[in-house]
């Protein structure tokens, strides 16, 4: 497996306080990475940097062997797509228009979408179960429906790397599982990097965890190895018991303070 991201000596600070300090790691193709850690540890900032939304102060981020800053934005959009945390949409675009926006990097500024684009968008909407309201306005959808539309938009970008920033935070259990099932099914073609809060949910789907605390990467290992009581105590300052749950075929965690 080849490294898709190589991060060396990454530092990031907002005007006067440090957010990320000296992070070094490599991410491999075809894995599902979960970025976890307490509130304010810099998870989302790290994702912003990996996705090219923010630039680092110091350090190198190599994407497929080239510095991420050397990619033009429209090229990066063909490699990385992002499902952001709850997005407020103020204008009444139809669901299909939103999903089609994921195709923009492939369509010339003043061209119409081709038949291929329409077919692709159609099949994505079918997979993500939003076809029934394809021509409705997004402003009329519920939070969960809207999040699925935004997820479909990212899928329409058809990128090798998919990033999720707490993308399931406002979905009910049913759609959380459905959405993460879709994501992990696409793992044979995509690398997935997700910021998550729920350790148990992450344990079911991720292959590897990045545990962060105070802007530093503390542990990065496969889910089997990283889920132990010592690590969880170190990161979250809670006592934990880890057990294997055969009902869902995954390790799970229960905690107390």
């Amino acid at each position: 497996m080849t490294a898709i991201f190589e991060v060396q000596h990454l530092y990031f600070a907002y005007s006067n306080h440090d957010v990320l300090q000296n992070m070094n790691f490599a991410l491999l193709q075809g894995k599902f990475y979960g970025i976890l850690g307490p509130n304010g540890c810099g998870k989302t900032t790290l994702l912003d940097i990996l996705s090219g939304y923010r630039k680092v102060n110091r350090g190198d981020i190599m994407l497929r062997g080239k510095n991420i800053n050397t990619y033009p934005k429209h090229e990066l959009a063909k490699i990385i797509s992002v499902v952001a945390q709850q997005t407020e949409i103020h204008f009444p675009y139809t669901v299909q228009e939103i999903v089609m926006m994921g195709r923009y990097p492939y369509i010339d500024r003043f061209s119409q979408p081709s038949k291929t684009d329409y077919d692709f968008v159609y099949s994505i909407m079918e997979q993500t179960d939003i076809l029934s309201f394809a021509h409705q306005s997004v402003t009329q959808l519920s939070g969960g429906e809207k999040q699925r539309v935004l997820f479909a938009r990212a899928m329409a970008q058809n990128t090798d790397i998919l990033m999720l920033d707490e993308a399931t935070a406002n979905l009910d259990i049913h759609y959380t599982l459905t959405l993460l099932d879709w994501v992990s099914m696409s793992r044979h073609t995509k690398t997935i990097i997700a910021v998550m809060h729920d350790i148990n949910l992450a344990a079911r789907y991720c292959t590897d965890f990045l545990f962060m605390k105070d802007g530093k990467l503390i542990h990065m290992e496969s889910v089997d190895e990283i889920l132990n009581a010592d690590y969880i105590h170190e990161v979250y300052d809670v006592h934990a018991k880890i057990y294997f749950e055969s009902f869902i075929n995954a390790k799970q965690v229960v905690y107390k303070r």
């Binding site: 934005k73 992002v82 997005t87 926006m101 990033m163």
Partner: peptide
Amino acid sequence: NLISLGAKTAVTTG
């Protein structure tokens, strides 16, 4: 159009 989906989405869509 893309900016109406928020800055993060717009930037990562090019």
